[in-house]
Lab assay of single mutants.
Amino acid sequence: KRPMNAFMVWAQAARRKLADQYPHLHNAELSKTLGKLWRLLSESEKRPFVEEAERLRVQHKKDHPDYK
């Protein structure tokens, strides 16, 4: 399984919050909304998630050196 990218790291927590706020939204609508919200974030707001995704990528490479 591939490591999560920055969006997926962020969306993991954001999806729970959004689903709690809008329990009537279908998963497809949640995903579209999350995409729009992510694009509205500034680079500095995204930075911690980009850094975490990079950490996960490096760890994955270490754990699975033959993964392509």
Rank of each mutant, 00 (worst) to 15 (best):
K1D: 04
K1G: 04
K1C: 00
R2V: 01
R2N: 14
R2S: 05
R2E: 03
R2K: 12
R2F: 02
P3Q: 06
P3L: 04
P3C: 02
P3E: 03
M4V: 07
M4I: 06
M4C: 00
M4N: 05
M4D: 07
N5P: 02
N5K: 14
F7D: 00
F7I: 14
M8L: 11
M8R: 14
M8T: 08
M8Y: 07
V9F: 04
V9S: 12
W10M: 00
W10R: 01
W10G: 00
Q12N: 04
Q12R: 09
Q12F: 01
Q12C: 01
Q12I: 06
A13Y: 01
A13I: 04
A13W: 03
A13H: 04
A13R: 07
A14L: 07
A14T: 10
A14H: 11
A14Q: 15
A14G: 04
R15M: 06
R15H: 02
R15D: 00
R15Y: 02
R15A: 04
R15V: 01
R16T: 09
R16W: 01
R16I: 05
R16P: 12
K17G: 02
K17I: 00
K17D: 07
L18S: 00
L18H: 02
L18P: 03
L18V: 10
L18I: 06
A19S: 07
A19N: 07
A19G: 05
A19H: 12
A19P: 02
D20A: 15
D20P: 01
D20L: 13
D20M: 11
D20T: 09
D20W: 04
D20Q: 11
Q21H: 04
Q21G: 04
Q21D: 06
Q21P: 01
Y22I: 14
Y22D: 03
P23W: 07
P23V: 11
P23K: 15
P23E: 15
H24A: 08
H24I: 02
H24N: 12
H24Y: 04
L25Y: 05
L25H: 02
L25D: 01
L25E: 00
L25I: 09
H26K: 12
H26N: 08
H26G: 14
H26V: 11
H26P: 13
H26Y: 03
N27W: 14
A28T: 13
A28H: 12
A28R: 09
A28W: 14
E29K: 15
E29C: 15
E29W: 15
L30I: 02
L30H: 02
S31D: 13
S31M: 04
S31Q: 13
S31L: 02
T33Y: 14
T33H: 14
L34P: 00
G35R: 10
K36L: 00
L37D: 05
L37C: 11
L37K: 13
L37F: 09
L37T: 10
L37W: 11
L37G: 01
W38Q: 00
W38D: 01
W38E: 00
W38P: 02
W38K: 12
R39A: 09
R39F: 02
R39Q: 06
R39S: 09
L40M: 14
L40K: 15
L40E: 15
L40T: 13
L40Q: 15
L41F: 11
L41E: 01
L41W: 06
L41R: 08
S42W: 07
E43L: 14
E43A: 13
E43P: 14
S44G: 10
S44W: 08
S44L: 05
E45P: 06
E45M: 15
K46F: 03
K46C: 03
K46D: 04
K46R: 08
K46E: 02
R47F: 03
R47M: 08
P48V: 03
P48Y: 02
P48K: 05
P48M: 04
F49K: 13
F49C: 09
F49T: 13
F49W: 04
V50W: 03
V50D: 05
V50I: 09
V50A: 09
V50C: 10
E51I: 01
E51M: 04
E51Y: 04
E52V: 00
A53Y: 05
A53E: 12
A53I: 06
A53G: 11
A53F: 04
E54G: 06
E54R: 03
E54M: 05
E54P: 09
E54F: 01
E54C: 08
E54D: 14
E54T: 08
R55W: 03
R55V: 10
R55S: 13
R55G: 10
R55Q: 13
L56K: 12
V58L: 09
V58D: 11
V58S: 10
Q59P: 10
Q59A: 09
Q59H: 05
Q59G: 10
Q59E: 13
Q59T: 13
Q59I: 05
Q59F: 07
H60Y: 06
H60R: 08
K61Q: 09
K61T: 08
K61Y: 07
K62R: 09
K62T: 10
K62P: 11
D63M: 09
D63T: 10
D63W: 04
D63V: 08
D63F: 04
H64D: 11
H64V: 14
H64C: 06
H64Q: 14
H64I: 10
H64S: 12
P65E: 12
P65Y: 09
P65Q: 06
P65W: 05
P65N: 12
P65C: 12
P65L: 07
D66N: 09
D66K: 05
D66G: 12
D66C: 06
Y67P: 14
Y67F: 13
Y67K: 15
Y67L: 12
K68N: 08
K68L: 15
K68R: 11
K68A: 01
